[in-house]
Amino acid sequence: MAKSQQTFSKSEKEKKRLKKREDKRKKMEARKLQKEENGSSGIPLAYVDHNGNLTDTPPDPSMKVKVKAENIVIGVPQKDDSEVEEFDPIRKGKVSFYDNSKGFGFIIDSETNEKHFTHVSSIIDDIAENDNVTFELEKGQRGMNAVKVKQA
């Protein structure tokens, strides 16, 4: 005689699946009844007022702002020559830590007070801790690195 192919776990999974299907059908019927009672079409509308906030009431038409299509800028706006300011790549700072045996250290920028990593390969003059230096910044693997480091 052969064993039954229906195991306990299979029957439990089948019961769960049938219960889920029945719950879904009941929810659908409840939504239909609610729609018939309220007379709503389902999803309520949301409006954006003149401040950009979402509301359930339509915005006041007198607060409407007209915008001409020519005034809409798509992309980054062009900079005028008067707006372009000269950027000096050479920065000043102070050596907060430098280990000569390991060949690396950190420089604190005097303007922004940010720490920048520097390596012995990017140092031009010999430096020590608390020296005032000039340097340039370059993007490294973990952030901005100080390069072309010279004593000030």
Rank of each mutant, 00 (worst) to 15 (best):
80 D>K: 08
24 K>A: 13
88 D>W: 06
46 A>D: 12
62 S>D: 12
22 E>Y: 11
63 M>G: 03
64 K>V: 08
133 V>I: 01
122 S>I: 12
99 D>H: 12
110 S>L: 14
36 E>I: 11
89 P>E: 03
126 D>E: 11
4 S>N: 07
13 K>M: 07
39 G>K: 03
104 F>G: 03
61 P>L: 07
124 I>A: 02
44 P>V: 15
24 K>V: 13
46 A>E: 15
63 M>A: 13
77 P>S: 13
55 T>D: 09
105 G>Q: 06
94 K>N: 10
51 N>F: 01
71 N>V: 10
119 H>Q: 09
20 K>C: 14
112 T>G: 14
34 Q>Y: 06
3 K>G: 14
137 L>M: 08
142 R>W: 09
37 E>H: 10
67 V>N: 01
28 M>N: 04
109 D>H: 01
72 I>F: 02
92 K>F: 14
85 E>R: 13
138 E>K: 01
49 D>E: 05
115 K>M: 06
56 D>S: 06
88 D>Y: 02
10 K>V: 12
111 E>L: 05
129 E>W: 05
84 V>W: 03
111 E>Y: 05
4 S>C: 10
39 G>F: 05
23 D>E: 07
60 D>P: 01
72 I>K: 06
22 E>K: 08
122 S>H: 07
15 K>T: 06
15 K>L: 07
88 D>E: 12
62 S>K: 10
120 V>N: 00
119 H>S: 11
48 V>G: 08
73 V>G: 04
20 K>A: 13
78 Q>W: 10
117 F>Y: 11
147 V>E: 02
141 Q>I: 13
129 E>K: 11
91 R>L: 12
13 K>A: 11
69 A>F: 00
32 K>Q: 15
51 N>T: 12
127 I>G: 01
113 N>P: 00
13 K>V: 07
50 H>T: 15
14 E>Q: 05
127 I>C: 12
41 S>D: 11
133 V>T: 01
30 A>G: 12
64 K>C: 09
16 K>A: 15
10 K>G: 08
76 V>W: 15
124 I>Y: 00
9 S>G: 05
53 N>S: 06
105 G>A: 04
110 S>V: 04
26 K>F: 06
147 V>L: 00
45 L>N: 07
101 S>Q: 15
52 G>L: 15
9 S>D: 01
105 G>V: 11
92 K>R: 10
42 G>L: 08
95 V>Y: 03
132 N>Y: 02
106 F>E: 02
42 G>I: 09
126 D>N: 11
35 K>C: 14
108 I>P: 00
52 G>Y: 03
70 E>H: 01
129 E>F: 07
101 S>H: 13
55 T>V: 08
82 S>Q: 03
20 K>G: 14
18 L>S: 12
62 S>L: 15
49 D>K: 09
115 K>N: 15
6 Q>D: 07
149 V>W: 00
135 F>Q: 00
67 V>H: 02
119 H>A: 04
